[in-house]
Amino acid sequence: MSQTTTVQDAIRLLYILVRGSDRISNHPDGYVGFFDGKAKLHALDFWVRYPDFLAYELLNKYEETGEDKYLLKAENIIDDQEPDLRSIPMIRYRFGAFENLHESLSLLVSKGLVYQDGDKSDETIKAYYYYITPLSVQLVDDVTKEFPSLGWYDERAKLVKEIAGSLGGSALKERQYKHMSYATTQLGTQIPSIKNEVINRLNALNRIK
């Protein structure tokens, strides 16, 4: 079902990990960023892959804070037809939207861009976390300039990080799960677009021209 290549997924994940991680310093191994948990990675990736769900969340944020920037951003997502152009569908599994990221993550690990670790117990990893290397940060800055087509991922990754705030993976998943379209999607089926719902919300706010 994949509409993207491994390298596309990898670059996307790289942006999410780099822009979505928390800055750390003085790590003995020289890592400069820490990304806590695969669940958080999946959650942020969901918002990147479903711009309409992100727009819905932006409208929630607007209603919470009253800040116009969130409203404007949601408008732009619709105006730029991102739900049609940028959506990369995901499958609904028991614990939410899921796609196996091993391959893409392996690429990042093998290239030395991300260091993957986890909490082990009974010889299985119970929780993953990722360290960001200085190379990946520099790489992301450089390739964003070099390849304009990747600029969207840079901006998007920063936005989802902002929206996520300090919430962990479970909390984010729970929030995403609250949306009925998500929650009522049958297990094993593709999570549908909520573009029309977002448009209706924007209409209600008299924002659609």
Partner: peptide, 9 residues
């Protein structure tokens, strides 16, 4: 994107 990602990696 694919081309850029390939080039990068």
């Amino acid at each position: 994107e694919d081309k850029a990602a390939n080039a990068v990696f």
